[in-house]
């Protein structure tokens, strides 16, 4: 009983925290983009204002839409984004659901918000949304390859180094993969870092991989028919998914904590690590989402597939070879 209560309470607290951090991240993102374009930009609270406005607006269900699917999908997207967070450790705080889930489960759960978008797009009965949904599916297929490659090779390297439970997040937070590899492995991990930085905008449908939403040619793509509350819930889901995806990358490749440096223990350590974790999330988001999105224009959908399969797929294979050689040289095999 007590466990269930604490899990429910933890979920609510985590959901509110994630929505807050996610919208704050969106605010930082818009502000930095504005500064890079030599303008002032909106206040940091702008995403909060936008969501508040959307919730106060009318929600239209188009005549062509399938109403129950159309209205359900934003909620599914938000719920599944929050569900990802239940399995992730934040700093030295253990995941709310403990060791119930591992990296493979999170890989699957990260697909669900995009799938909800796809189903919502098809259910809205607009040709723009249909094209957008098809593009979203194609780009999901594209970025899944390098993402799966990087996750599995890291777990494999940990396994070779005789770490128990290499797929578990608690293991990843305790044993940094950077500590078990040699010089060749470091190069491989740096490649994986680059890979992850480029998968993140694809997963989050940001420029240059925002082909499914493509405002200029698809008028908003998947979201074209969504308005009011439904659009607001989708933007909350996007905010939470941003936090979840970047947190996933941070846990896998940048898992250090600050508390051992200061020699802290107990609640103080948890607080310091939590703050440090979110600082890392903000920094990674600035480098892999904001800067990239200001620098680049949008890829065509064929280019998205080419980039992810051939360039980043090739980099992934290079990283696999480097880490295998490293394991061989370090005497793990």
């Amino acid at each position: 009983m007590n466990i269930i209560l604490s899990a429910v309470g933890g979920t609510v607290v985590l959901a509110i925290l994630a929505i807050f951090v996610g919208l704050f991240l969106a605010g930082i993102d818009r502000r930095i983009v504005a500064h890079m374009q030599a303008r002032m930009g909106p206040p940091l609270s702008q995403p909060f204002t936008d969501v508040k406005k959307l919730f106060a607006k009318q929600s239209i269900v188009p005549a062509n839409a399938i109403p129950w699917l159309f209205n359900l999908m934003p909620v599914v997207a938000l719920a599944s984004s929050i569900a990802v967070l239940l399995y992730l450790p934040f700093g030295s705080l253990a995941p709310i659901l403990g060791d119930a889930g591992d990296m493979i489960l999170v890989l699957y759960l990260l697909i669900v918000p995009s799938l909800a978008l796809v189903i919502g797009g098809f259910a809205s009965g607009s040709p723009y949304a249909t094209v957008g949904a098809q593009r979203e599916m194609v780009s999901m297929i594209a970025y899944e390859l390098p993402l799966a490659v990087s996750v599995i090779i890291i777990a494999w390297r940990l396994m070779v180094a005789n770490v128990a439970n290499p797929f578990s997040f608690t293991t990843l937070m305790e044993t940094s993969v950077w500590d078990v590899v040699g010089p060749l492995g470091i190069v491989g991990l740096l490649i994986l870092l680059i890979l992850f930085a480029w998968i993140t905008p694809g997963e989050l449908s940001k420029v240059p991989f925002d082909t499914p939403e493509a405002e200029t040619e698809l008028a908003g793509g998947i979201l074209v028919e969504y308005s009011g509350r439904n659009l607001g819930v989708f933007s909350l889901a996007q905010a939470v998914k941003t936090v979840a995806m970047i947190a996933f990358g941070v846990i896998i490749l940048l898992p250090w904590n600050l508390s051992p440096v200061f020699g802290l223990t107990g609640a103080g350590a948890a607080a310091v690590d939590l703050v440090f974790f979110f600082v890392k999330v903000v920094i990674v988001s600035i480098f892999s989402v904001t800067v990239v999105r200001t620098m680049m224009a949008r890829f065509r959908i064929t280019q998205v597939v080419k980039v992810y399969w051939f360039i980043f797929g090739g980099l992934g294979i290079a990283a696999i070879i480097l880490l295998m050689l490293d394991a061989f040289l370090m005497g793990g095999l």
Partner: peptide, 21 residues
């Protein structure tokens, strides 16, 4: 354009009339 920057006041150009105010 950046010279006038209406995004300061939250003004944004959207692609779909469903999103617009």
């Amino acid at each position: 354009t950046p010279r006038y920057d209406p995004e300061r006041f939250g003004v944004k150009l959207v692609g779909s009339p469903r999103h617009a105010d």
